[in-house]
Design a protein around this nucleic acid. Structure first.
Lengths: 330, 330
DNA sequence: CCTAGAAATGACAACGTTGTCAAAAGACAA
DNA sequence: TTGTCTTTTGACAACGTTGTCATTTCTAGG
């Protein structure tokens, strides 16, 4: 900047004014500065700028996801990015792998880079450590799962209601022995979905049978094995409800292997690419990651723009997509 | 930092030393500083630090991908992150959407935040604009596609060889009328794959028939329509080679709709989640995004560590996964 | 006890910007 | 022309760190 100022024969403050498009600069001076900047190919240093600015904004936000390569998480990431780019804000992303300490390490790394906001898909079960960040003015929004011991804006899918709709759908096709396969019970969405299953059974006056429940199935292989075990029961369940997309895939594999994919009904939570091309197509309760991410980003920027209203929970509804597997009669 | 220094009754330089774990600090002083930092919950400001440091490193890199939510791209992203976290480096990620100007805008935004390195999956066809960045010391690596008018380390899949293997596989099952469906011809990998198709036909002495070629199919819908048109030809192709994962999905949809999925053979480039559960399973030439991303990140950090050797092209091999669709006889 | 050398600590400038405030230049009326 | 008010420009400090170098405090040998 000093060199640009020298070449254009103006003060560095004037260069700063031109670079930041501040009003009250004569066109002649602006032109001179711009051509000097061009000639020296000057690159504005946002690091120094944010250090000096009174608001200290870095035009960068941090996003903590379970795994940036997970389809649901990367869809969140993309929709957050779309809202951010419109404001010239860049996104730092990291994967927590469901590990509390990794989540905290990521947040610390983001904080030391002075991000303006954080969007977190929580892995940990105590978010009180975020108090310091909030006190420092960082906007914090949770997605997909609620925070613990911390009050902040949250954007959630209505998990229990979605599951209830799926279970009801199975029951309406005549099923009474409906099994449930869920992800790690420590993940709050998984717990919510299990609760939805139990609630709907109760509402339908179908007795709860714990032999039909398998929890803590993290990943395709575990789900496949658990499904195989369920299918070996006598009498065996006539329908399966799977509480997460990898669990759905594992369950479908097991059904295929047992040759029962056209006999036992299946409804899964979360949509899966290609689910429509399988035989039968898989009926799912689909979340809307685009809407979740967009909402979270918008709420975050509203906070950064000075919104001081009490924190809110935003619920994004699910959609049932029927494709065949959920419409098999017992 | 000033406050911590005051509370611990030391100079700010000593606080800096403790924070950066510089040698030659007495344990007593270190302890005093740490407890003061704890009490004030001091958060180190990496922005100011990188501004002052002599190497100017920000411990942040920028990654430009086609779309962070695309499965191939997000797998790249994840493997890059894995290498970066080990070094305490964070990743800024952005989507170019195959748009040259978006790519340039992202790079500019990264540059103004003084990233240490850039990993780019190129959308543009002239990378000479990166000269300025390189001169400033930024390490630059290209992934998936080669740069144009710019010399830099590049990590690529051997696209042509992969396609040739797939086409040969089809021919070995007796196919002579093998159609090719490709993505936008402006994408260099798509062009390479098409070249592999033509080369292998020539090697096999199968005459090239341009009626069996459909290019510029970006997205599932276009691929589906193009496949339907191909299947209406008389005589129709007995096998399809699809040059990209969404094209494969579109082609499979069309085959299913026409009831030809067990009659017409299909080999696709790029693996697809669930491809093994379809009927028939889809035979693919699989890339290894994990290896590509890891290699790119390692090369980049080697450059940052001072490697000045001439830039290199790293080739990652493909793997053929046979699942049924590619083994259908004509 | 003193002294030389090593180890620990500190004072101060500088990194590249922008906020503050003052000075210079221009516009306009009398 | 002068005086007043407005617009444009500039000087300088400060943001939170770390590099440089000077100073103080230890350690060990005589």
């Amino acid at each position: 900047m000093r060199e640009v100022a020298a070449l254009a024969k103006v003060s560095i403050k004037s260069v700063s004014r031109v670079v930041n498009r501040e009003p009250g600069v004569s066109p002649a001076l602006a032109r001179r500065v711009m051509s000097a900047a061009e000639r020296l190919d000057y690159r504005h240093n946002l690091t120094a700028s944010s250090l000096r600015r009174s608001d200290g904004r870095s035009a960068t936000i941090g996003v903590v996801l379970e795994d940036v390569s997970n389809p649901f998480a990367s869809a969140l990431h993309r929709s957050i990015e779309d809202v951010a780019v419109e404001r010239g804000v860049l996104v730092l992303a990291g994967s927590s792998d469901e590990d509390e300490s990794r989540e905290r390490r990521l947040v610390r790394a983001f904080a030391s880079r002075r991000v303006d906001g954080l969007i977190i898909q929580p892995a940990s079960h105590d978010h009180s450590y975020l108090l310091t960040e909030r006190r420092a003015g960082t906007a914090i929004v949770f997605v997909d799962r609620p925070p613990s011991f911390f009050d902040a804006d949250t954007v959630l899918t209505d998990n229990a209601a979605g599951v209830r709709r799926g279970v009801k759908h199975l029951a309406s096709h005549g099923h009474k022995r409906i099994a449930f396969l869920g992800d790690l019970h420590t993940i709050s969405t998984a717990a919510e979905r299990f609760r939805g299953y139990k609630d709907e059974l109760a509402a339908l006056r179908i007795p709860f049978d714990e032999r039909l429940v398998r929890l803590d199935l993290h990943g395709i292989e575990k789900a496949e094995a658990a499904t195989a075990a369920l299918l070996a029961l006598k009498p065996r369940p006539t329908a399966l409800f799977t509480g997460q997309n990898l669990v759905t895939i594992g369950a479908f594999r097991a059904l295929r292997r047992a040759g029962l994919h056209t006999k036992v009904a299946l409804v899964g939570f979360d949509d899966i690419l290609l689910a429509d091309l399988l035989e039968p197509g898989i009926t799912v309760i689909a979340q809307d990651p685009g809407a979740i991410g967009r909402t979270a980003a918008e709420v975050m920027f509203r906070r950064l723009d000075g919104d001081r209203s009490p924190s809110q929970q935003h619920i994004v509804v699910t959609k049932m997509i029927t494709r065949g597997s959920g419409e098999i009669a017992p």
